[in-house]
């Protein structure tokens, strides 16, 4: 502390009569001028270009964001569309499958019926044939038996 005082005293007395901590002089307006000049220089070199760059980027980001949002909405719309189509196609395919199944079922059933009818018809046919033959055979047998009975009667009666 003492040395400071001494130094200050020395500065005040030994050198020029001015000096000290609170020495206001032409430094003040010149420094103000310098700062004003610096403000203008920095405005044209720093604040304006950088502000322009930042705002351009903000604008770019906003527009690309809206673009991306639009594209996203479009993609979503397309996806919904495709999904709708897919569901329709799936329904259609199911219907086609069902139809085909029904068709094949029907065909099968028809063929079955035809075959059954055929079988029944041929069986009936065969049975009627057999019946006819049997009746024929029975008729023949009866005639034979009659002839034989007549023969037997003829043989036995003359002898009596």
């Amino acid at each position: 502390m003492t040395s400071w005082l001494l130094l200050a005293e020395a500065g005040a007395t030994a050198g020029s009569p001015e000096g000290g901590l609170f020495d206001l002089d032409a430094t003040l307006p010149l420094m103000a001028l310098q700062v004003v000049l610096l403000t203008f220089i920095l405005n044209s070199l720093f604040f304006r270009p950088v502000g322009k760059a930042v705002e351009d980027r903000e604008g770019y980001i906003t527009t690309s964001r809206t673009q991306a949002k639009e594209q996203l909405a479009q993609a979503e719309r397309l996806e919904a569309d495709l999904r709708e189509q897919l569901r329709g196609a799936r329904l259609e395919a199911q219907k086609v499958i069902q139809d085909a199944e029904q068709d094949s079922d029907r065909l099968y059933r028809e063929a079955m019926a035809v075959a059954q009818a055929d079988a029944i018809a041929s069986r009936e046919n065969a049975r009627s044939k057999i019946d006819a033959q049997r009746a024929e055979a029975l008729g023949a047998l009866k005639a034979d038996a009659d002839r034989l009975a007549d023969l037997i009667v003829a043989r036995l009666l003359p002898a009596s």
């Binding site: 502390m1 400071w4 005082l5 200050a8 005293e9 005040a12 000290g20 901590l21 609170f22």
Partner: peptide, 11 residues
């Protein structure tokens, strides 16, 4: 304090 030490008006 600095005024009193370095720019004393009473010195």
């Amino acid at each position: 304090a600095l005024v009193l030490l370095f720019a004393n008006p009473f010195s």
